[in-house]
Nucleic acid binder design. Structure first.
Lengths: 254, 254
DNA sequence: CGGTGTCTTGAATACCATCAAGTCTTGTGG
DNA sequence: CCACAAGACTTGATGGTATTCAAGACACCG
């Protein structure tokens, strides 16, 4: 019940947060660092200070609800989260997994209602910016607008890919593609190395099920089959891709 | 083979096109008219003239290809089109149906590659704007930026809804929801009246199949079932919703 | 230590795909 | 204008993929 107020505020001003951003794996890509810097490079116009706040939530806790109104735009600093649509019968569809450096939704720059539930998968640290200020900064700096448009396009591209996966691919393909999609995103962030590729993988099978439109039971069966074929090793919140070529073949082909 | 060059250019300057826009059902909503007007209200800055061109393509012709580069952003003036992702095995997934007044994709404002195929379903009239100019106008007029952000949000919301439909709903629900979604969009545009609701409905069953992730055969069976239950009347490119309440019940419930 | 959440496995079932045959319409070239 | 081909739709039979139901193993936590 007290979960409702789960997030703890940590701070609410720009400068002291910088060190945290230095460790952010999405340091290069994301809007977060850029926005903070802009607020420093920007003392010209006015005594400008962008309001931001760091929050921490434990695994499984809600970050924001579909119907709530927020004037804050959250960006994930560390941990994994998911944006989820709930159906009246209790089933769920995961629209997207959120990784460090991801903005929860670019649409939040324009409307206060997320229209989907955002839930922490691991412990999550995230930072919120005030929408009006973030918007002003983004739109007054062409190079930031550029970053925004790239984030927007990637968000849409991933949604479109998911539509294709759900509409036209088998369970094996969906699951393999989900995993590879996540691995590729982690690689871009320098959060995975090694050969064979091995990484922390905090998703439960029910997360995979909700993202692929399958049942947890069937996900279990498919993963077991992948294991038996020596494609991957997956257990205890960790994943290794033993046969990258074979696994990618399953993900793409018919 | 000569299909490749299917589109015929009609004109390439703003003013004479106005009368056509006056009939556009999305007159209020869309960016098109607004952008044209802005180009008039804008002689201040420079001898500014936005480049636009009208095109007409017959049914079943391609409007743009996934890998082509365009510096033009198309907006549908009349007719129906679809954006489609093709898979290597020849199957297709329709991401979205485009109705009069729709911008083909808001992402085209930022990148030249559509990354999906756009195909005319009926004969289609559309107008293209030069990306750089359209962008400049949109971003220099707050009220237009507002319209753009609403278009962006709606595009994303519809994609998310489709993900849920494909991931978590039965064939009956998907088909009913597709139809109702289209009808609602047409109502917003004042393109449908009457009680019982009756309208031109140019989709072939294979379009419905490609949009819902089903096979044409199964679409036929479901539609026949809907007909037998007296929910809808559908034939000869026209559709009537005989039992709106019952039909909406099928679309939403479990 | 019971309770809850996670995962696995097997059996029965449902839903939708595939295959196939046939009707009807639409379009096209002789 | 007709003949023929291609596309659109329907219907039935059969099969495969994924769901549902059920039971049990295991880990973690208060």
């Amino acid at each position: 019940m007290q979960a409702r107020l789960g997030a703890r505020k940590a701070q609410s001003c720009a400068e002291p947060a910088q060190s945290a951003c230095g460790q952010c794996p999405a340091y290069e890509l994301n809007l977060c660092q850029a926005a903070s810097e802009a607020s420093w490079a920007f003392p010209s116009a006015a005594p400008f200070k962008i309001h931001q706040a760091d929050h921490t939530v434990p695994a499984r806790r809600t970050i924001c609800r579909e119907q709530d109104l927020h004037d804050a735009v959250p960006i994930i600093c560390s941990g994994w989260a998911a944006s989820i649509i709930m159906l009246s019968d209790g089933s769920r569809q995961i629209l997207s997994f959120l990784l460090p450096g991801d903005i929860v939704s670019t649409a939040l720059l324009f409307e206060p209602r997320p229209h989907c539930l955002v839930e922490a998968i691991t412990d999550v640290r995230y930072r919120t910016f005030k929408r009006s200020e973030l918007r002003e900064i983004l739109f007054s700096h062409p190079e930031l607008l550029d970053k925004l448009s790239r984030a927007w396009i990637e968000e849409k591209t991933r949604a479109d890919q998911l539509i294709v996966d759900l509409g036209r691919r088998t369970a094996d393909e969906r699951i393999a593609r989900l995993i590879l999609g996540l691995v590729d995103r982690l690689i871009k962030r320098d959060m995975v190395h090694g050969d064979p590729l091995e990484l922390d993988f905090p998703l439960r099978q029910h997360h995979i099920a909700d993202a692929t439109g399958l049942t947890p039971v069937h996900v279990s069966k498919v993963l077991s089959e992948f294991r038996r074929s020596g494609l991957i090793k997956i257990s205890e919140r960790s994943l290794a891709i033993l046969d990258p070529a074979g696994f990618r073949r399953i993900a793409n082909m018919r």
